[in-house]
């Protein structure tokens, strides 16, 4: 487990030190009341690794990545992100959230702020960056997601694909070490999926540590270092994409792949 595979030619630059186990999940359980949603999850992710999590709906994959920045709390086991263990301690939670960016299925942009203000909000108030610097940085990221011309508009004036790209730029503005994607393309019209995936592929190429919950199997094949299949709150199978798609071991995985491909 946890062998870093660097198949991507672009990832040679930025990553000077490759930190092993930047995310460590050990024997983690979660219940909603008496309902056991996540059962004994174990996972270690190295810096620069790209993980894709897939599985049928209700398998707990979204809940799992939401535990990694403590949007959901776990009740047993440990989650350690960048050497900080997630407990009830608010300071730990805040420091983890500063380093972990998240992109949601429904974008969750702030409708009362412009695109640029959305991007600058957290750098200004959390990282205490001067406004001009924050705006300059935000414009860079907006250029990277190819919508610098929309900076002064409000989210409600953009298409779904544009909104999701703004959401990615907003998360990147905090210069996170890790990016979590919670079904980023599920709420999009088909013609907009590609523009978002392109941005994600480009981001993967830059060496960002990424965990994506997605049904986009094409994305998983080209980008992922490992694919994780979850069902019924458990990790059923975990393998590099080449192996996962051509030669799945578990019956449940095979069944899922038949349905989806």
């Amino acid at each position: 487990m946890g062998t870093t595979m660097t198949q991507h030619p672009e990832s040679k630059d930025s990553q000077a030190e490759k930190k092993p186990g930047i995310i460590r999940v050990e024997g983690m359980h979660k219940w909603y009341g008496d309902f056991h949603v996540l059962k004994d999850l174990n996972l270690a992710v190295d810096q620069g690794e790209r993980i894709v999590i897939c599985g049928p709906s209700g398998s707990g994959k979204s809940t799992f990545i939401r535990c990694i920045n403590r949007l959901e709390e776990h009740q047993q086991g440990r989650i350690i992100v960048d050497d900080v263990e997630l407990t009830d301690d608010v300071r730990h939670i805040d420091s983890v959230r500063r380093e972990v960016g998240m992109v949601f299925q429904h974008f969750n942009l702030f409708p009362h702020l412009t695109v640029l203000e959305n991007c600058c909000l957290s750098p200004i108030w959390v990282r205490k960056v001067p406004r001009r610097e924050a705006e300059a940085a935000a414009m860079e990221y907006l250029e990277r997601v190819k919508i610098p011309d929309q900076a002064t508009k409000y989210p409600g004036q953009l298409s779904g694909g544009q909104q999701q790209r703004v959401a990615i730029a907003r998360a990147l503005c905090m210069k996170p070490k890790i990016m979590l994607f919670d079904e980023p393309t599920s709420a999009l019209d088909p013609e907009m999926i590609k523009e978002v995936l392109d941005v994600m592929v480009e981001l993967a190429g830059s060496g960002m540590t990424m965990i994506c919950v997605t049904h986009e199997m094409g994305f998983a094949k080209t980008v992922a270092d490992r694919v994780i299949f979850m069902d019924g709150g458990e990790i059923v199978e975990e393998a590099p994409p080449s192996e996962f798609f051509s030669n799945p071991r578990e019956a449940r995985t095979q069944k899922f792949l038949q349905q989806i491909l």
């Binding site: 008496d34 056991h36 019924g232």
Partner: peptide, 13 residues
Amino acid sequence: MSESTIKPPKKYT
């Protein structure tokens, strides 16, 4: 399948 019989820790119920 593996229907879990583990109950959540007492502290949480």
